[in-house]
């Protein structure tokens, strides 16, 4: 308790803590509703929406000169509007293109589309930089370069500049699937074991084959059911002459 203007009040820090908890969990809940878009996939508008929602949450926490509820309602309004925009863009293709913009062709058959990149307020230097990031050092190598709505450049190289694939060489390749975690941090995940149609007995045999007596010795064990590959990593890594990339080696 502190005395402000002769009246005993709760310490303002306590009020900030409570408002902080409200803002934190509201933000967590609302961002979960808004979905799982990666930062790199955000459009410029999504980015601004994120900043605004964050800013409202910050004010909700620390601005004690105003009530918490109007800020919280502001959070709800921005979340609901964003969500409606998302739903509109999913449901109506035309509206989606209007709101989120459209990908545009920046390079076609090695030729830069100057008027298009100018319209997108994209400089030639930006274009070259993005091309270099994709491992392309001359626009001549490009068949198509498309400027995506989030400002990234997708590049399709000309056929003669594409890397050779096993298909080009008519090489047979084995199937590759998705690795499933069977053991993590010494704990066997029976549900995953069932998913890859294997049982505990099979896992024990695999562990024995790798010289492991107990699952608690294992940090990570993953299995690819398509290729049948089994990868195991123990806590005890028997590595001699460990490469130290740090500037401050542990033992000098």
């Amino acid at each position: 308790m502190v005395i402000i203007l002769g009246v005993e009040r709760l310490n303002e820090s306590l009020v900030v803590i409570v408002r902080g908890i409200i803002a934190f969990f509201s933000l967590l809940f609302f961002t979960r509703i808004l979905g799982k878009q990666q930062i790199s996939q955000l459009t410029f508008f999504d980015y601004i929406v994120g900043i605004t929602i964050g800013s409202i949450a910050a004010t909700l926490t620390t601005d004690l000169t105003s009530r918490a509820l109007p800020h919280w309602i502001g959070l709800v309004v921005w979340t609901v509007l964003s969500l409606s925009m998302q739903l509109i863009t999913i449901k109506w293709r035309r509206a989606g293109k209007f709101i989120g913009g459209e990908p545009t062709v920046a390079i076609m058959n090695g030729k830069i589309m100057e008027s298009t990149i100018k319209k997108m307020r994209f400089r030639g230097a930006d274009l070259m930089e993005q091309l270099r990031e994709k491992g392309v050092f001359s626009p001549q190598e490009v068949e198509f370069a498309i400027l995506e709505t989030d400002g990234r450049l997708s590049v399709l190289k000309k056929a003669e500049n594409q890397p050779v694939t096993p298909k080009d060489l008519n090489m047979p390749v084995g199937k590759k699937g998705v690795n499933t975690e069977l053991i993590y941090d010494g704990v066997v995940y029976h549900q995953n074991l069932k998913q890859v149609n294997r049982d505990r007995k099979w896992l024990d045999t695999q562990l024995q084959m790798h010289g492991i007596k107990d699952e608690s010795e294992v940090f990570l064990a993953v299995f690819d059911p398509e290729s049948g590959q089994f990868y195991i990593d123990r806590y005890e890594d028997k590595v001699k002459n460990l490469t130290d990339m740090s500037d401050y080696p542990e033992h000098e």
Binding site: V7, R9, L10, L64, T65, S66, R67
Partner: peptide, 9 residues
């Protein structure tokens, strides 16, 4: 006062 502090300005 302490009761309304979380909701008042």
């Amino acid at each position: 006062v302490p009761r309304v502090q979380f909701s008042a300005e």
